[in-house]
């Protein structure tokens, strides 16, 4: 299996907000939260229970979530969790605040190309190898997208567009290699 990380669509920072969001409509048990999270947001590796409970503990400490009751019965933990006023405010703030556009001004691919040129290696080989790997990944994502449902499609497309951007950069760099080589050698 050619691996690319797609399981972690929701970054570490936002697991907290994801759980808040899931709690807003109704109070839930810890295991319910984990399953809903997995259903909506993950692809390969499910969220582990440890992460669920550590996040909930943090939310409880911050007063964003409260325990709304414990049910009797078997099982490790039968606590229900509900969102607080403060939790709703925090979630609303997070949702309406735009994400910083991620700008990658330093990237490994660029460094590799420049180093290849400096050391007199074939820079196109670097680019071509990268392109092949990228395209392979895209092919796999496309296949997964076409076999899955709408959730899969949207998640895969997000990744595809990013890979596509990388590939465009590779393409453009490939056609400007001579120019770049001159610049690198001159300095």
């Amino acid at each position: 299996m050619l691996g690319i990380d797609t399981e972690c669509i929701v970054g570490v920072m936002s697991v907290k907000h994801a759980l808040l969001g899931l709690l807003e409509s109704q109070s839930r048990h810890g295991y319910e939260l984990k399953h809903s999270y997995d259903e909506y947001f993950t692809q390969d590796k499910p969220l582990n229970y440890g992460q669920v409970y550590s996040t909930l503990a943090r939310l409880l400490r911050g007063g964003l979530v409260e325990e709304s009751g414990v049910e009797a019965g078997a099982g490790p933990d039968r606590k229900r969790y509900a969102i607080t006023e403060a939790g709703v405010t925090d979630l609303a703030n997070w949702l309406t605040k735009p994400e910083e556009p991620a700008v990658y001004l330093q990237n490994t691919m660029y460094v590799k190309v420049v180093l290849a040129l400096l050391s007199g290696r074939e820079a196109t080989a670097v680019l071509d190898a990268q392109r092949t790997t990228h395209l392979r990944a895209m092919r796999e994502l496309t296949q997964r997208k076409n076999e899955g449902d709408l959730t899969d499609a949207l998640i895969c497309d997000h990744a595809l567009f990013h890979l596509d951007a990388d590939l465009r950069w590779l393409e453009l760099t490939a056609s400007r290699l001579d120019e770049l080589a001159e610049r690198v050698r001159a300095s």
Partner: peptide, 20 residues
């Protein structure tokens, strides 16, 4: 590349030659 991703494999033509 998003279109090419629908294929089983790809060839790249540059300056009239197959590159990859």
């Amino acid at each position: 590349s998003r279109v090419a991703a629908y294929a089983d494999r790809e060839v790249v033509v540059r300056d009239g030659r197959i590159r990859v």
